[in-house]
Nucleic acid binder design. Structure first.
Lengths: 122, 122
DNA sequence: AAAAAAGGTTTACACACGTAAACAATATGG
DNA sequence: CCATATTGTTTACGTGTGTAAACCTTTTTT
């Protein structure tokens, strides 16, 4: 089952810190996204149905916790894109951004460091 | 307007070589995707409506040509993912794959070459 | 000429998504 | 106790998507 973009906004909030109450999530996410209360409620329910989060009762309310990890989600999404557009390989993706001049100084520095690390690991 | 995943299969075919007839596209794409004729026809029409392709009459049939370039499409998609998941920066994405041990020897070699090139450009 | 094939155009239908209101149950303040 | 607020559950509705059949014209075949 897939997490939609709207749903992922809720997930981001939960990944940032869980468990959280619906109230918290609402306060955090709704203004930024321009959503009404009902929207957040619906998304929480869809996420529950998809087993991407769980809810434990805490008195009269629920505490929501992610079941799907951000790592896993990011992996899925990234792999999907890579496979669809770059033959499943990372270098062509970086080359693409390089061609588009979308590599910042910082990116370049970090990539250098990364490659060095990979060296060290032997 | 966005190109859906199914639609992008048609686009890939056209990016590979255009213009093409519907027949060509059908022969190329349908078996691979397990699609019926009607499916391909529908997708062509949706792409026309979205102005992602154009059709010029050639006798009794049409020749289809992309209007949206692969470059542009790839850029949009990649930027979307990067923004949503990696704060819009490339290095964290590469780091992610690195952590997951998803960098092949070839990737690493290519990334090295790329970074050297960037050096040379000064 | 009637039938069939080829090719394009329209319509269909179920399901996901974005968005949200309506409703229900329960707790709380007056 | 009753009205109100809180919180969760159900229902809704327009649009996009995946998938495809139905239909209409124009050629080709028999």
């Amino acid at each position: 089952m897939t997490i939609s973009e709207a749903e992922s906004a809720i997930m981001e909030c939960l990944w940032q810190g869980a468990p959280r109450t619906a109230e918290d999530i609402l306060a955090e996410v709704a203004p930024r996204q321009g959503w009404q209360e009902g929207t957040v409620k619906s998304l929480l329910n869809r996420l529950l149905k998809k087993k991407a989060i769980k809810a434990e009762r805490d008195g009269r309310r629920y505490l929501y916790t992610p079941l799907l990890s951000r790592e896993k989600y990011v992996s899925q999404e990234s792999k999907g894109l890579l496979d669809r557009l770059f033959g499943g390989r990372v270098a062509p993706l970086v080359a693409h951004f390089s061609e588009q001049r979308k590599l910042s100084k910082k990116d370049i520095a970090e990539l250098r460091r990364l490659l060095e690390e990979l060296d060290d690991e032997h």
